[in-house]
Design a protein around this nucleic acid. Structure first.
Length: 458
DNA sequence: TGGCCTAATTG
RNA sequence: AGACAAUUAGGCCA
């Protein structure tokens, strides 16, 4: 599968980039991976160009340049970027080939967390470094991914959170009805550089690649004008980071496999399924030891636990408690976040018209549904649907305000005049009015379907 | 069928 | 508001 991609790469090389490297055609295997030498044209111009042309990268570049400019490649527009690379690629490539390329410092940004109070630190590399990292990722991942554990699902091609949840569910159904939920504390910030590099060195023979990754790990951090060095942690935000986290935690996978555990891992979220609480506590104790001593990582005691699956959430899902059926359901936290978001989207204070509000809500619902449809509890979706619709009726009712307007709108929506009158005349609160026949007739489910509002449950 | 864009979720 | 990867859904174009 990586073969076909590679062929496309070399065929798709544009004339401009071919000219840049006239003498080095034979040396496409610039960087070698142990075991499969000369098959990997890693940092040749064609690959680089392919990356530049990848359209999913361009919006990111655009944003970076519009917002803060790009450190290291300043004053450049998106259109100029390919030209910049064309002009400087020879030079950059030269440095890459000699293992002396040094990345620019990463820009540090703090973003507020969605649910909690805390902030998350991101380290954003320059445009050029992002491209190089992405190239590195693509090549390394193609070689490495096959050897990762079957139980690891995060950040890997053709693997999804859904598959991970399904795997967990199959353990439950097989009778492993206790879960050891492990949460690693500030995982990205604590990765030990030497450890990571030595693991990489077992598979990568080319010192230049190791040198490059090392340079990315050690890249300085630009914080209010000052550059400070870094000694641990992978820059969270760089394209390479998710992959590196898998490399580190692959050791954990292999150990769990060696011990014959039933487990699922997605990023730093690891669940082990066992048959009893006692077994769970035993596993928790010994794996904690392994993680702290061998991997030199910390586990977050407050977020880790041995419990029954319905008490825990995994990737936004949980499981039903009753009767050992273990159906997938939407976790309470996810429901809470959903309602919060819908409330915000339907709030009247935002000055957009009704159509627009429906459209905005629709796209949120569609996306949410695409992920959570995987749950097997129809009730949850029905409840949410009616909750949403009631909320919308309520919002519209409030928007109409006066008796005159309310009656007129109701009639326009096909309510008989007498009913429209009594409904509009009533002075009950909006939340109660929306349960009366008058409003339900006017703003029926059918009405919302016609407006293009998707149903979570269908 | 393939390409491009938008949106949502997970970590 | 803004980084990354994967996955889905929707749209557009040939």
């Amino acid at each position: 599968m990586s073969n076909s991609k590679r062929q496309i790469t070399s065929q798709g090389a544009s004339p401009a980039f071919e000219q840049v490297k006239p003498g080095s055609n034979a040396g496409t295997a610039d960087l070698l991976i142990a075991g499969q030498p000369s098959q990997s044209p890693m940092f040749d111009a064609a690959l680089m160009e392919e990356i530049c042309q990848r359209s999913n990268l361009l919006p990111a570049l655009k944003r970076v340049m519009q917002n803060q400019g790009a450190p290291g490649v300043d004053g450049m527009t998106v259109e100029e970027l390919p030209n910049y690379l064309k002009a400087h690629w020879l030079d950059i490539k030269e440095r890459l080939l000699h293992g002396v390329y040094r990345p620019q410092p990463v820009r540090k940004v703090a973003i507020p967390k969605l649910n909690g109070m805390g902030v998350r630190q991101l380290c954003i590399p320059t445009v050029l470094d992002r491209l190089i990292q992405q190239a590195t990722l693509q090549v390394l991942q193609a070689k490495w991914d096959r050897s990762f554990s079957e139980h690891s699902y995060g950040f890997r091609p053709r693997r999804s959170a859904h598959q991970a949840v399904a795997q967990a569910q199959s353990y439950l159904k097989a009778g492993y009805e206790w879960v050891v939920d492990l949460d690693l504390e500030k995982f990205f910030d604590r990765v030990n550089h030497d450890r990571l590099l030595s693991v990489l060195a077992q598979r990568i023979s080319d010192a230049r690649v190791l040198q490059l990754i090392r340079a990315y790990l050690k890249a300085g951090v630009l914080e209010n004008g000052l550059v400070s060095p870094r000694h641990e942690g992978a820059a969270q935000g760089g394209p390479l980071s998710p992959f590196l986290s898998n490399v580190v935690l692959d050791e954990l996978d292999k150990e769990l496999e060696r011990r014959g555990h039933q487990f699922v891992r997605y990023g730093d979220d690891c669940n082990i399924y066992v048959c009893s609480q006692r077994a769970g506590e035993r596993v928790m104790a010994s794996i904690s030891r392994f993680i702290t001593h061998r991997l030199k990582l910390k586990i977050n005691q407050s977020k880790s636990a041995v419990a029954r699956p319905h008490e825990r959430k995994f990737l936004g899902f949980s499981f039903t408690a009753s009767g050992g059926l273990h159906r997938r359901k939407v976790a309470n936290e996810a429901i809470r976040r959903f309602k919060q978001r819908v409330r915000q989207l339907t709030r009247r204070t935002r000055s957009v018209n009704w159509q627009e509000r429906i459209a905005e809500l629709s796209q949120y619902l569609r996306g949410w549904k695409a992920y959570f449809e995987f749950a097997e509890t129809i009730r949850q979706f029905k409840d949410l649907d009616s909750w949403i619709r009631r909320r919308l009726r309520c919002a519209l009712w409030k928007q109409w305000k006066t008796y005159r307007r309310r009656k007129r709108e109701l009639i326009a929506l096909g309510v008989p005049p007498l009913l429209a009158h009594t409904t509009a005349w009533s002075n009950k609160g909006p939340w109660r009015i929306c349960h009366t026949p008058g409003v339900q007739l006017a703003l029926s489910n059918d009405y919302f379907n016609r407006q293009g509002l998707p149903k979570l449950n269908d």
